[in-house]
Amino acid sequence: MSVRALVVDPAAAAAVRLAEVPDPAPEPGQVLVEVSHASLNYGDLNDARSGRVPEGAVLGSDAAGVVVQAAGDGTGPAVGTRVVALTAGAFAECVAVDVGALAKVPKGLRLAQAVALPVAGLAALRSLRAAGLGPDKRVLVTGASGGVGRFAVQLAARAGAHVIASVGSTARGEGLAEAGADEVLIGLKGLERPVDVVIDNVGGPQLVLAWGLLAPGGSVQSVGWTSGQPAVFPPYATVGPAKSLTSFVIEGDVSADLAVLTELAAEGALGVEIGWKGSWDRFEEAAEALRGRRIYGKAVLEVASGQTRPR
């Protein structure tokens, strides 16, 4: 058997096309998930063009759907369980997922909402944790209108921090004050007091400016680089009182943190903003909107399964 999937193709529009790929063969510690929704991240677009995901391989990291085959070793959720997962090759009708890479989706939370959480929600949660988030901290979130940014604003505010959201335009700042931002700035204009934590999604010159605003002992977490520009630090910018610039990546078992995020979302304590939703046949449209920064929050792809598997 085979399943349909979005695979990398440098010759195709957006470097991605729909294709048939072999049916996934789960290992003992994996479940088989029939995917109903996938979430598109900025990093997916870069993966398709950079060669990090090779030609012909299935793209994607965020998937949500229903377990149609339980793990052979007896771990993980049962058949019929709604789940959300962080897994390579997520953009397929059916995927094999490690039990440590998924969480059950609580009642009251739609799969279309849950699928927005893995990459963006985990990046926000774990980068804030790594930076030493606390109620006495001043937290700057750059690129705050995107998926990671909006979750970071909410989670930092929930922890009692003073949250400063940086966006590219007035329009992109809409809703961030309601999400918990104490200040919403265009770029870093008007920010003069030092900050303790920077969750940086932009990179480039703005990263350099944010570094200059970091208080002694503070931390910049480099989560994304949507600017596509180099960050050029002036001489001696990195010499002085101790502070850190840390590269960030999601690693290891994510099930517990993903469960926390889904519970918060189900309770309404973590808002999930979906700025674009449509069939995965419209991938090029979604990609163009995301690259053009016309999406606030997340882009969600609806996966039209060509087959029904036994449950």
Rank of each mutant, 00 (worst) to 15 (best):
M1K: 11
V8E: 02
P10M: 09
A11P: 00
A12Y: 09
A15V: 07
A19C: 01
V21M: 03
P28G: 14
Q30I: 13
V31W: 05
N41F: 12
G43L: 02
D44F: 04
D44E: 15
D44K: 11
D47C: 06
R49C: 08
G56K: 05
L59S: 00
G60S: 07
D62K: 11
D62V: 06
D62T: 06
D62C: 09
A63W: 08
V66I: 14
V67C: 08
G74S: 14
G76M: 10
A78R: 15
A78D: 15
V79E: 13
L86T: 04
L86G: 08
T87W: 03
A88F: 02
F91S: 01
A92N: 12
V99S: 02
K107T: 11
V115T: 06
V115Q: 06
A116L: 11
L117A: 09
V119D: 01
R126L: 12
L128D: 03
R129Q: 04
A131D: 00
A131I: 03
G132S: 12
G134F: 09
D136W: 08
L140G: 03
V141A: 12
V141W: 00
G143R: 00
G143C: 10
G146A: 05
V148Y: 02
V148P: 01
V148Q: 03
V153F: 10
L155F: 07
A159M: 10
A161Y: 07
I164L: 14
A171P: 07
G173N: 11
G175V: 14
G175P: 03
A177I: 04
E178H: 02
E183M: 04
V184F: 14
L188I: 07
R193A: 15
V195D: 04
I199G: 02
G203Y: 02
G204F: 03
P205R: 10
L207K: 10
V208G: 11
V208S: 11
W211F: 10
G212I: 05
P216V: 12
V220F: 10
V223G: 03
G224D: 06
W225T: 06
P230N: 07
F233S: 13
G240C: 07
S244I: 01
L245D: 01
T246S: 12
T246L: 14
S247V: 00
I250M: 06
G252D: 11
D253K: 05
D257Y: 08
D257P: 08
L258C: 01
L258H: 07
L261K: 09
T262D: 01
A265E: 10
G268R: 05
G271E: 14
G271H: 14
I274N: 00
S279Y: 10
S279R: 12
W280G: 01
R282K: 13
E284L: 13
E284I: 09
E285Y: 03
A286T: 07
A286P: 05
A286R: 04
L290P: 03
R293Q: 15
R293L: 10
I295F: 11
Y296G: 13
K298Q: 15
K298N: 14
A299Q: 13
T308L: 15
T308D: 15
R309G: 06
